[in-house]
Simulated scan of single mutants.
Amino acid sequence: MDASLVAAVETGLAAAADPAKAPDMQRYMKSDMPFFGVAKPQRAALVKALFQAHPIADRTTWVDTMAALWREATHREQRYVALDLAGHKPYQRWQDVDLLPLYEEFIVTGAWWDYVDEVASRRVGPLLRQDPDTIAPRLRTWAKDDDRWKRRTSIICQLAAKQATDTDLLTDTIEANIDDPDFFLRKGIGWALREYAKTEPGWVRHFVDTHPGLSPLSRREALKHLAQ
């Protein structure tokens, strides 16, 4: 890993910390892990400078550095930076299906929407489109997993897919969770359908009409921008 980058992230976040904001941020996110109190715009500026100052030369170092930022985090923003590093444009050539176990770790140990939604839509989703034969079967397994965040990921990972949406996969992951009362699953189902309705409103309308078991929340979200 790039130990100098990991250390610089902690030092930079500590220097930018706002102790007055930190408790409110922690309370809003219902987080056991404390915050430094660094808002997203300030974090983005810091990350840009640090990533420029500490370029990573190889894939192994990049992966190990992401993992270290995540696993060694004492404050929530350090894990946000791990996700920022995962999405850093110069390193996108290293994205491949071998990253799925690490992203799965982020999902399971992060276990909250701020982490999970980022990983699902911006990391797992692109991997699905890159190698559907490998990733789609894994997502069908995740859709029935005991972990609700893996299940949510399987449902919302295609938010940005538009015309490339695998509707069979979307159907399978929703149907596997349609009876679950969990708020985050019901909200995720509605969100996934609402986004796809921007591309194929007729498909979504038909799906809703033929799935009376959808919760009122999922149905309302799915039809939010369609004529009632």
Rank of each mutant, 00 (worst) to 15 (best):
D96P: 14
G12S: 12
A14Y: 02
L100C: 05
L170W: 02
K48M: 08
Q52W: 02
A57C: 12
Y28V: 08
H54L: 06
K40A: 04
A17F: 04
F184I: 09
P132D: 10
S154L: 08
L139D: 06
A197F: 06
A16K: 13
A86H: 02
A22G: 14
P137D: 01
A45S: 14
A197M: 07
E175Y: 05
A45L: 14
R79I: 12
A192R: 02
A49G: 04
Q52Y: 00
K198N: 12
M66E: 03
T74I: 03
G202R: 14
R93E: 11
A53I: 00
T210E: 11
A44Y: 02
W70C: 06
E105C: 03
H211C: 09
E77W: 07
L69M: 11
A8T: 00
A15H: 10
P34F: 02
P19T: 09
H75W: 06
R59L: 04
S121W: 03
L99T: 10
Y115V: 12
F36L: 09
Q158G: 01
A136M: 05
L100H: 02
L100N: 04
R219C: 01
G12R: 08
L5N: 04
G125H: 03
R140V: 04
W113E: 06
I174Y: 01
L226A: 10
G87V: 01
Q78T: 12
D145V: 09
R186V: 07
W149Q: 08
R122H: 15
G202F: 03
K30Y: 05
F35G: 04
C157M: 13
L169I: 08
I174W: 00
I189F: 09
M66D: 04
D84E: 15
R186H: 10
P181R: 09
T199L: 12
D179G: 11
D180F: 00
P19V: 07
D32L: 09
D18I: 12
E72F: 05
L127Q: 06
T199F: 12
A86D: 07
N177Q: 04
P23S: 06
A22R: 10
V6P: 09
K40V: 05
L85I: 12
I174V: 14
